[in-house]
Design a binder for these strands. Structure first.
Lengths: 347, 347
DNA sequence: ATCCGATGTGGGAACGATGTCATAGACATG
DNA sequence: CATGTCTATGACATCGTTCCCACATCGGAT
């Protein structure tokens, strides 16, 4: 790390307040407020004068003071697990976009999958008096805590407080079933599932979808083929290496998210196996790399950007109508058939 | 999109204020403030009592009121171009992490490469009275505007106001020179540059680095080989397709960022060319897919997470010492040699 | 001439937290 | 006993905005 020095400091006078604008325009603070916000009477010539004065002074109303007075802010909190994961990044992008549309500013925190960080962030959001929060939760703690402070919450991607808070999720069960059924239809009987947890709604439902498809295909479930991996690429890769070196390895793998898929993909390559002739692979959540590698990876695609945007829109509705029944919105997913899936190798 | 209805509404009483805590603890508001913030006297038994009362009531101080009174907030604004680009996502992740470390909340806006959105976001940040802003700027407008409102700014990745504001960037020139020199050393003479702009510091310096390496290798620059692409994958791909079908195509390509590299990569594949035997490829900015595709892509890696974190740390220093000279911090980059570069094909 | 509604405008009290200042009691020192 | 010092607390003004209310002006209707 190199550091070079450059020139010039900064210096500033006091920020203009509504009082300064009032004096400049020769009216009272009340009148300035009315002219600027458009609530209440203000003669058009006066309004003109006030607008010009505000413009000249570079006046920007103080959100702190306004929020304090009105007891309601125009910002929403967004709590996501890991911005480095393209899934959460895109979710945040969607949230950002919808928030801007609706005139909200977005306070974002990356909770790093840590419950403690998550709680701290939640407390900060309460302190900020945000109008609402969208969260990809790790437990029911955050939703409960925020709700107890009267802050509307929307759970995204997974739900811990379904019934008491709004949620926006995707068709996990259907998606997983479709992906697995696709493999079954191709003739696979030994289909492994890589999954990081089955306690959260996402994991549980994807697991169920997998089971359903197997059952529907008349295949008895082999518990050996259900791999509980850790949440990161390294662990997934390690477990995949183990499995692939075992005596009778699966002919196909369904990876329950993009991170696990990456680990499996790397392991397959390291073992020198060919996709799809030796082994088929299908992933839940279509990450950018899946359409760049060769062969391209078949995946269940979810509209992640829209997931974030929908959550913010739902939050907005909730803020407007605090007493209405809570709603769970389910976005549909679809299977993108690419090159990583084919018939199982002949025996 | 399917919607199912679930149960139960929400309802809440007023949020507890410092006054409620004071009454519960049987002391004055002043004493509560002292006990909670630790500034000023408070007998230990009284402190105990206040702490317990605050805990029981679930009291969380109102940041709005505090900021209004103290005239300084504990939040920073972060303005990035596009969260869907892994570069900016990781930058934001680094910023988030460093902000949390230092006790700042992060207000994030995705400015979508639009100058208008950027200005609106900047105005919102002024209104929020953020303690400072880090921005990946599109012009000098934002920095100027924020500075004129007395808000410290740190420019990240590229600089428009070097000299008057702090900056955190990477060694663009060195990185580009190293990457190009690597190709020269392998024997390439016809090396194309894909670049989206040369007006910003990033583009300009990467271009300069490219030129330097060619000159040092005794190669005269062919303007035909310097491709000014648009900023997205589609455009980069289109131009790469053009170039690759031309009469004497280059034997190597240096793509000035991950987006352009993706376009070039896709085009090469579509043209049915082999990397690296037909054509070598090296990229600036190591995106995740580059180590997943086959052959893996040689790239100049920048520590993007650290870029964001360093910017926030620099901002913090600036906030603490508003009058010190501005500083540009340059993070070093390094070339990761992978499989996409080799000697040019024999004639 | 009086009253009335409509149209504007300003005064001033909030919102919740902080911090200055005044003050009161305890205790020591001369 | 008077004075000073230290500890501890509460009263109150303040930050910048909004908005309720009082009030002023004016034209028109009675």
């Amino acid at each position: 790390m190199t550091v070079e020095r450059r020139s010039t400091p900064v210096s500033r006078s006091r920020r203009p307040t509504i009082k300064d604008v009032a004096e400049a325009a020769g009216v009272s603070r009340s009148t300035v407020s009315r002219a600027l916000t458009g609530r209440g009477y203000a003669a058009s010539d006066v309004r003109e004068r006030v607008l010009r004065a505000a413009e000249e002074l570079g006046y920007v109303p103080d959100v702190m003071a306004r929020t304090l007075k009105q007891q309601v802010s125009r910002s929403v909190g967004v709590l996501v697990s890991d911005l480095r994961n393209p899934f959460y990044a895109e979710l945040a992008a969607g949230a950002s976009s919808a928030a801007r549309e609706r005139g909200y500013t977005m306070v974002l925190a990356d909770t790093s999958l840590s419950g403690e960080t998550e709680s701290e962030a939640a407390e900060a959001l309460v302190a900020l008096r945000v109008a609402g929060v969208i969260v990809t939760p790790n437990s029911s703690a955050v939703s409960t805590y925020l709700s107890s402070h009267g802050i509307p919450v929307v759970e995204v991607d997974r739900q811990f407080a379904a019934g008491s808070t709004d949620g926006v999720v995707v068709g996990n069960r259907v998606g997983a079933r479709t992906a697995t059924a696709h493999l079954v239809k191709l003739g696979h009987r030994r289909i492994a599932l890589f999954i990081d947890e089955t306690d959260w709604t996402t994991g549980y439902e994807r697991y169920q979808g997998y089971l359903e498809a197997l059952t529907a295909g008349g295949i008895t479930v082999d518990p050996e083929l259900v791999v509980s991996s850790g949440w990161d690429v390294a662990d997934s890769r390690r477990r995949a290496l183990d499995m692939l070196s075992g005596p009778d390895r699966p002919t196909a793998v369904f990876a329950a998210n993009n991170v696990l898929a990456e680990g499996v993909w790397r392991a397959i390559r390291e073992r020198g196996l060919a996709v799809p002739s030796d082994i088929s692979l299908v992933a839940f959540d279509d990450a950018p790399w899946m359409s760049m590698v060769s062969p391209q990876v078949t995946a269940v695609s979810q509209d992640t950007f829209n997931l974030g945007a929908t959550a913010v829109r739902r939050l907005h509705e909730r803020i407007e109508m605090p007493e209405s029944d809570s709603v769970t919105t389910v976005l549909n997913v679809h299977l993108i058939e690419r090159e990583s899936t084919t018939h199982p190798p002949a025996l």
